[in-house]
Every structure is written in C-alpha cells, then in structure tokens.
Design a protein around this nucleic acid. Sequence first.
DNA 1: ATTGGATATGCAGTATTTGCATATAGAAAC
DNA 2: GTTTCTATATGCAAATACTGCATATCCAAT
Lengths: 91, 91
Amino acid sequence: MNKKQLIAKLSGSLNLSKADAERTFDTITNTILDALKGDDSVKIAGFGTYKVAKRKARVGRNPRTGEQIQIAASQKVKFLPAKALKEVFNK
Amino acid sequence: MNKKQLIAKLSGSLNLSKADAERTFDTITNTILDALKGDDSVKIAGFGTYKVAKRKARVGRNPRTGEQIQIAASQKVKFLPAKALKEVFNK
DNA sequence: ATTGGATATGCAGTATTTGCATATAGAAAC
DNA sequence: GTTTCTATATGCAAATACTGCATATCCAAT
C-alpha cells in the first residue's frame, strides 16, 4: 500500500476529501518529525515509539571492490513497536 | 513527547477538538495496522515504510541464569525511514 | 502520459542489533 | 488514584543492518 492508497482509505473512514485527508496526514507526520528534529522521542501508546538513534562512525567495506572505507557517524529514526503491536503478529 | 501531547498539538494544527484529533489519529494508525496484518507493507513517501519482518527462530539466553533457551520465530513491524528523513538528521 | 526521483535487490564481510527473563521505576491511561 | 504499559539493565549467540553501486521497478508529480 502506498501513500495514495492510504489517503484514499482515510478519506473514506474520516469522511474527508482526499485533499483534506492528505493535509491531515501530512500535518501528523510533520508534527512527529518536528519532535524528532528537536531530539525528542515520540511515544504512541499501543503503536510504538519513534526515536532518533545516533550511530557511531565505523569501518565498512565496499562489497564490490573489497576495499575498506570509513563510514561517518550518522543519525537515523528508529521505530520500536509497542507490545500490543507485537502480539498482533505473533498469535 | 507522548500521545497526549501529540494529540494536543494536532488539535491545534488541525483545528479539531482533542477528541476528534485523537479519533483521527487512531483511524490512521489502525488503517496502517490493518494493512500490515494483511501482510502488506505501507509506504509513505517522504516519511518511511512500515513492513512486517519475519524473524527466524534462534538460540537465546536467559541473562539472569545464563541458560540457553530456544527462541521461536516471530514477526515484528519494521519502520524504514525514507531517504528524505535520513537527510534531515545528517546535515 | 511522461519523467525524474526514490526504492528494492544482490553481493561480502564486519559492526550492530536483537531478544531472551525478570524486577523495578517511572510514565501514561482510564 | 489505580492500573496498565514501557524503559532499563544484565550476558551472549545468532540474525540482521550497513556500505557502494548497477539495475530494475515503482511511485509522485508535472
């Protein structure tokens, strides 16, 4: 399912136009992103937690040539599924 | 930031009551979860992809006693941040 | 409808993460 | 205010992520 299909579903469930559904959805993701940019984590009960994970610089390897390369430190968004979410898939 | 705070923000941005903001938010998460339950992945452009990852059974260990235990195969929801999302945090 | 951009895949080897049990502390939900 | 949920911390084995890069595919926006 891609974003367009998701928006179409939401448009129906929420009784909104597709344009409004998309605006609503974007507002939510942007709000989450803003919190993450401020180095805050976002906990959503029953769904999961978004947090920014810092990754240290390390040595990697180009699989094609085999040569070693330095990988810079970076940050990425991690999503940790809530307990309820795991249970859904493991029964 | 927890769910309550997120809902409060959305209530303001979307010009909805907190109850409506929460209903809207829950509708979205449920829609995503339903797709995942159907073993479908959910791609959201500019944000990321949710997918169900199957994890193989393996040998684990009880950290308290040190004894080895068998861990069953399981499934969990994975979130892969979109490229745009990584860039936000690495500049 | 076309096109530009984003993502999936495969590859090799190493670094990182995962997930186990369990209690407690702290936070959040009702 | 009470109850439910989540983070944390522990050691360790095995699964998985990550890197460059080319190709194929797929999506989004024009």
